[in-house]
Design a protein around this nucleic acid. Sequence first.
DNA 1: CTGAATCCGGAAAGATACTG
DNA 2: CAGTATCTTTCCGGATTCAG
Lengths: 130, 130
Amino acid sequence: MTFTKNGKTFHCPVEAALDVIGGKWKPLILWALGDAVLRFNELQKAIPGVNTKMLTKQLRELEEDGVIKRTIYPEVPPRVEYRITDFGKTLIPVLEALCNWGANYLGIEDEDASARQCRQKQQRRNEVCE
Amino acid sequence: MTFTKNGKTFHCPVEAALDVIGGKWKPLILWALGDAVLRFNELQKAIPGVNTKMLTKQLRELEEDGVIKRTIYPEVPPRVEYRITDFGKTLIPVLEALCNWGANYLGIEDEDASARQCRQKQQRRNEVCE
DNA sequence: CTGAATCCGGAAAGATACTG
DNA sequence: CAGTATCTTTCCGGATTCAG
């Protein structure tokens, strides 16, 4: 059984989802943008290990897929802001599942740092959505 | 804030989770093994596009992380079975979130093929777990 | 015959210098 | 500041080979 979307062929829904967030840095980018609007270098600081070329590439692909929005302010020095779109927000439950699993994997009880980090993000998202 | 697990350093739980299932084919492998025990070439058929080298590599990494178990039967012709471990099963909710999002992304209503495929897998898992 | 290791060419990723 | 350009390195895919 196959499915088609935007001219691409997928053999299962998981494969289709991976086409959007399967990039090496994409989940981390989305997770960072889930509760904040960030500039390019803020993203780079938020995601240790990514270099400018890769960050640019993955951001462009996410924008192409309508998951994030890129806004250029014609100022000096230049300012570019990245924010998650409404469509992108539908991915947050997936990332939360990933975060919760990761928190558990890190061998952490409810009140430890990792789980707290997940919850803080959830809270900030809720505040933004109100 | 950083976390450590098995000598690796992570900056957030999502990063830790990606370390385990972030490989290009890993989600699809786990999804295939979520409701069935499969042999090497069955996996290869279940995951269109993967070649033997990559499949072997990703399987070894998943085995290394304790997510799947590899069983060799010393027969002629040789037989190798892969199955998900109890630890690996804790990842299924993450993959279900991915599958559900993918089904929706494919522009599908409740009773269409993609969502049905997700549900069929869920059902088979439930049967296996009974 | 299945499952996998090896070899090689091309593609992708990484580091870093540079520019509007 | 927000990226590009360039160079290096690593990874991936396909074919072939090989062991049980």
